[in-house]
């Protein structure tokens, strides 16, 4: 397994480096990145929900309130409980997403001005 891997967020065309073995969410937070909403960081609240569209990973315990078995089989995970084994590509699904996408595009617009 590589020590580092690249995590790409489809929603924002953004990426960050993550250590294999640490959770996606932790990797994101450690480097001061944004994009996946951060809640409890422990698999209970569901705000960090993402769909992995490419790549391999392992998952820890996740509250079934937020990820059903079916969803899990289709690559839906909680980013705080998802440990990449290599480069990953994701789509952010959590319910804060819209707010963040909005403010993100707002910031981008400002940056472009």
């Amino acid at each position: 397994m590589p020590l580092h891997c690249k995590v790409t967020l489809d929603n924002y065309r953004e990426s960050f480096d993550c250590r294999t073995g640490e959770s996606l969410l932790r990797g994101m937070e450690r480097l001061g990145h944004k994009g996946i909403p951060v809640g409890c960081r422990n698999g209970g609240c569901g705000v960090c929900k993402v769909r992995v569209t490419r790549g391999e990973y392992e998952v820890g315990k996740m509250s079934r309130d937020h990820v059903s078995e079916d969803e899990q089989n289709q690559g839906v995970v909680l980013a705080c409980r998802c440990h990449p084994r290599g480069d990953l590509q994701l789509q952010v699904l959590g319910h804060l997403t819209r707010i963040i996408e909005k403010s993100h595009s707002f910031n981008k617009q400002n940056a472009n001005n």
């Binding site: 409890c40 960081r41 422990n42 698999g43 209970g44 609240c45 509250s63």
Partner: peptide
């Protein structure tokens, strides 16, 4: 803060 299951 949060417990290991995400309960605040």
């Amino acid at each position: 803060f949060f417990d290991p299951s995400g309960n605040r």
